[in-house]
Nucleic acid binder design. Sequence first.
DNA 1: ACTTAAATTTGCCTAATGCGCAAAATTGCT
DNA 2: AGCAATTTTGCGCATTAGGCAAATTTAAGT
Lengths: 186, 186
Amino acid sequence: MRALANAAFELAMEQGLDGFIVDDVAGRAGYSRRTFTNYFSCKEEAVATGASIVNDTIEMEQMLENLSEDTLPIDILFQLIKMQLTVDYLKRMREMALICKKHLTMEPYFLKVVRQLHVDAQETLMKLTNGKVDEVYIQLLVGGVYGGMLPVIDGSVHIQFPDQSSSNNTFHQHLDKIYEYLKNGF
Amino acid sequence: MRALANAAFELAMEQGLDGFIVDDVAGRAGYSRRTFTNYFSCKEEAVATGASIVNDTIEMEQMLENLSEDTLPIDILFQLIKMQLTVDYLKRMREMALICKKHLTMEPYFLKVVRQLHVDAQETLMKLTNGKVDEVYIQLLVGGVYGGMLPVIDGSVHIQFPDQSSSNNTFHQHLDKIYEYLKNGF
DNA sequence: ACTTAAATTTGCCTAATGCGCAAAATTGCT
DNA sequence: AGCAATTTTGCGCATTAGGCAAATTTAAGT
């Protein structure tokens, strides 16, 4: 299934959404068309899935070790975000955003992927705070962060990606700005 | 086109997504199937569109009149929200959320409609503040509010809808809660 | 009212899609 | 190896997406 999604994403980047059909995806991944439809309802869904990465929950557990008892939810969240939205991930999202601009049918599936990020972060944060924090609080917090990240993800806010060597990167500056506003109120 | 969307939404409520085909939608709306595909890429998109309501920008102008110079963006936004998310609108969204639970293929199109609300509010707020406010600020603010509203919209948070007679309604209480958090920080 | 240009709708056609069903292949377990 | 559970596949068919050109409707000018 991962193979199918990857194949779809690659084909979309190489040929554009109209440049291939489901058979091509299945073929490249080494499966039959029927298997493709077992997992995806359309090309678009497969492409979007291919652009996203599954974050295993192991990272979450790694994080737990570094947490002191009184770390604020907002700080936990921002640590999470930084683990989740790696440079690689953002680049993939950008690729997808590009495809979206050309093919309107992609947009809903793009949104679905971003939404999944959102939901994952929310659930993880719930677990990490262990039910001690109001659920609405968490919903709002995560909603705010992802609402602010969306323009970054889809490229409508231009962000210089950090590479390992450069010390000043605007991506983290943007994150800091989000942090400030959410922390101190509007 | 509105007629097609409405027909699709009604059919989805009456028969469920699997209970009809595109021809039925076109037929009920009095158009041909070919015309349907001129406007929608699939049933789902039509249904989602039918569930949403176009807000003309007249309301925005109405609002402008009531605004004093120094009204805070967050207060403008909450007035906007209250105009946009009427009880009727929320009920339609709930209907759609219900359909979503049964038919996973609807979800991306549901998200698209909600996203549109989000974008509309953002653009309106930009106009109303007339470029005097940082764009990131607005993105975050609107993102926070809609992130917090999403669980309400899709019904995962149970909310008693206000009717005209009841004075205490939990929907507005929820809005107030969102307001507090965003205003005062996390 | 009449004419003409622009926009919308439609029919026709064909490649592509979605999915139920049952058979075949693969995997996992003992 | 033997057997159960899961995954993959082929077949078939109703449905769908969209290019193209004709037909119809709408809007505008005179």
